[in-house]
Design a protein around this nucleic acid. Structure first.
Lengths: 330, 330
DNA sequence: CTCCATCGTGCAACCGATTGCACGAACTAT
DNA sequence: ATAGTTCGTGCAATCGGTTGCACGATGGAG
């Protein structure tokens, strides 16, 4: 029913292997022959069957992006969704497809499934999956972790933004603006990236350390911030683990009539679209998700082509300064 | 190198076709044989090669989700990302993979590529792709549009939430709360779903019609709302096309000292995670993206199995009432 | 002018499954 | 006891490409 390589070969008056070679461009073919093949392909509207091609070549032509999502929110998470966009773009540029798989939902291991059934040639994994048992089953199958694994840091292959540096930068910026009692607000302490941000905060902070960890909701951040701001020598600035925490904090500041940035300075991680429309617009530690996605795909392909061993890539973050931290006039 | 069906067959002392039948469970096999085959599979840690399987069976075992995204924000859009989550879940439950493809980036048609190269068995498409030319090339290939196409509405296969009904419901709710001059704020008028929401607004609204269309940003909504609210007989309630518009509106209300919900009532489409933390929490026309994703996959599979022709499924929306529209005490 | 390397193309095996057909064994009906 | 089913399994073709090897033609060197 569908047009095959043999139909093209017959029309062009050559053998199917010649057509294959024309398509893949790996061998030298007489220009004349090549042209006849192309003409036949065009005439028949030929599209190679990628399944047959994969079976023969042993390459699926797809990479898998695994995410551990219990609920739909994990998919709208800006870090994941923006990275995914960049990953898709980079993969498409190489003629590769992107398969997404939710590791949290699947019975059996989604990773094992994709890998052992030859559905993908490589995997992009979340750091939470990195455990000795998985690394054993994954063997030397190509993968890249998007984020820093908590364990096996130096023996695995990953790409991440430098959370520690980002938090340090945030604190130093607030200090330069004259804030003195800087607190850290938001995030589960059990998440690796939060731990690293807190470490960066601690590195740069030379005042009293105040760390307010939340369950990740804006509501919780609001409550904690409200209580903290009611005390006598309350913090005069916050580094927020994410935009939601900053949102809760802003609400608390408003209710307590503490103007931002005059009385309270705020810097938050992750550049949500709303961040610049908040009141005041938020200063942000911006993660270059486009670069992160692009780099992880690049590294993954180098692994697929067996050109490199495990590598670690750390990208630095950028500070986007907006009103929420600008106490001093420019 | 990899374990094949033949290795399993040899170990179990049967023919490879028997192993195949055991795996697929389509034929009756002696319990004894079956057990021997399973034992061999376990012992060898056998995983069927999905590529070979697909080639032989003619089914790729994947569905494609196409999105037209110029920038990364389209991926974090709550409608897309939440639907995608549900789609992945529903596909995985059927043993199917989900391939995502950005139609806006690809040279050549991403849709044609996925379809003609047999990479997917069916497609979930965005409504903007529905054009006569595409429908011609797509032929009777299984697809479902997620959203209502602007054209070919009755000849195509789609699943959508009822935007018209949602907007009507929002207006009626505001009327019941005693608001009288209800305006519509936000959204490109060229987008189909915005048009339908506006139509719903018009159906229910019996006062003066005020439609403030924006470029989609919170900033623009803020400006338009601010200007509208400065006039003498300004609107006393708004239906917002999305949360960003509501965000801009809230800012305008605050600056003009118009308390919400006492002076101004607000209902917005799309339940962002932040909506309930806004000040005041927003009343929302909530779209059941989980159901939308699930239904679209279900319908797609019925099309793949050739059980049905083109169908249209319209899901109703729900009103989540919060403080922003509750002028009357409960 | 012969010899040999190089180049373009064909032949056929192979990738790893699925599946229609055939055949022998076991079972039912008469 | 015999004929006719039914059931479980094997054989071999097939899905649509890729690729190692072989072979004839061409071209340059000696």
């Amino acid at each position: 029913m569908a047009v095959t390589i043999h139909d093209v070969a017959k029309l062009a008056g050559v053998n199917s292997s010649t057509v294959s070679r024309v398509i893949n461009g790996k061998a030298t073919i007489t220009p004349d022959t090549k042209e006849r093949v192309y003409a036949a392909m065009r005439k028949l509207d030929y599209h190679p069957n990628s399944l047959a091609r994969s079976l023969a070549s042993g390459l699926s032509g797809a990479i898998g992006v695994v995410v551990n999502a219990r609920d739909a929110e994990a998919f709208s998470n800006v870090f994941f969704s923006r990275s995914l966009f960049a990953i898709e773009q980079a993969a498409q540029a190489r003629g590769y497809q992107v398969i997404i798989a939710n590791g949290a939902q699947s019975r059996g291991s989604a990773i094992e499934n994709l890998m052992k059934e030859h559905k993908v040639d490589g995997l992009i994994l979340p750091p939470t999956t990195v455990k000795p048992a998985l690394m054993e089953t994954i063997g030397d199958f190509p993968y890249v972790v998007l984020g820093t694994p908590d364990t096996l840091r130096s023996e695995t292959c990953w790409v991440d933004n430098n959370n520690e540096q980002g938090a340090e930068m945030a604190v130093r910026h607030l200090q330069k603006q004259g804030y003195q009692r800087i607190a850290y607000l938001g995030g589960h302490q059990k998440r690796g990236f939060t731990k690293r941000r807190i470490r960066g905060y601690q590195n740069a902070n030379n005042g009293t350390e105040t760390i307010l960890s939340t369950d990740g909701t804006a509501e919780n951040a609001y409550t904690l911030a409200f209580d903290a701001l009611k005390t006598a020598d309350h913090p005069d600035a916050f580094v927020c683990n994410d935009n939601l925490a900053a949102f809760g904090l802003l609400k608390a500041c408003k209710e307590l009539h503490l103007p931002v940035p005059q009385e309270i300075g705020i810097v938050a991680f992750d550049n949500y679209p709303l961040a610049e429309y908040m009141d005041p617009p938020l200063t942000i530690v911006d993660i270059d998700t486009a670069m992160l996605g692009e780099q992880s795909v690049q590294l993954l392909f180098r692994r697929i082509e067996n050109k490199v061993g495990n590598q670690q890539i750390m990208l630095s973050t950028n500070l986007v300064v907006r009103a929420s931290s600008e106490r001093k006039a420019k």
